[in-house]
């Protein structure tokens, strides 16, 4: 009786250990720091060159298209610091001036950050602003810009 029980327990134990191993090993291989542009500039060079996630806002009018398919360079800004990013895939629809952008990739020796993936969130489209300024209401676009007061 008890040997049966042990057999069952051991079998389940093995499965559980396998599962745990799968999770832990997968985890260690895929960790990356998630930093803001300011944090990024504070990091030592060795860390900047590993795979990272960096968050900042797209500097308006900073996108330069190179004409080489979808390749483009742009600036991310946060806390007064900027980062030049290269990206050559299709950009998401939410990637517009002022968007909050998260890029994944690493710093290259040419001084720019080469991004493999890019996620973007519209500046204020999903969120409603706290205050309205009637003077900021634009009758042509029907846009109400949120005030800061």
């Amino acid at each position: 009786m008890s040997s049966k029980k042990t057999k069952v327990a051991i079998s389940f134990g093995i499965v559980a250990v396998l599962l745990a191993w799968l999770v832990v090993s997968g985890f260690n291989e895929n960790m990356q720091y998630f930093v803001t542009v300011t944090d990024f500039h504070k990091m030592p060079a060795s860390e900047q060159e590993q795979s990272l996630r960096v968050k900042g806002n797209l500097v308006p009018a900073s996108v330069e298209e190179t004409g080489n398919n979808l390749e483009m360079f742009f600036l991310l800004e946060e806390g007064g610091e900027q980062l030049r990013v290269r990206f050559d895939k299709e950009r998401p629809d939410t990637f517009v001036d002022g968007s909050e952008v998260v890029v994944e990739g690493k710093l290259t020796d040419k001084g720019y950050f080469a991004a493999n993936t890019l996620m973007a969130k519209c500046p204020s489209k999903y969120e409603s602003s706290d205050d309205y300024d009637v003077n900021a209401y634009d009758p042509t676009t029907h846009e109400i810009r949120g005030g800061t007061n």
């Binding site: 985890f27 895929n30 960790m31 990356q32 720091y33 998630f34």
Partner: peptide, 27 residues
């Protein structure tokens, strides 16, 4: 774990550490 890890590391160590998409597929 993959979802809340950034929150946890930020609370414990003050840095956000994320796991990339391949982690979820691998597991």
């Amino acid at each position: 774990w993959g979802t809340i890890f950034p929150m946890v590391t930020e609370m414990v160590r003050g840095v956000k550490v994320t796991v990339a998409e391949p982690f979820f597929n691998t597991v």
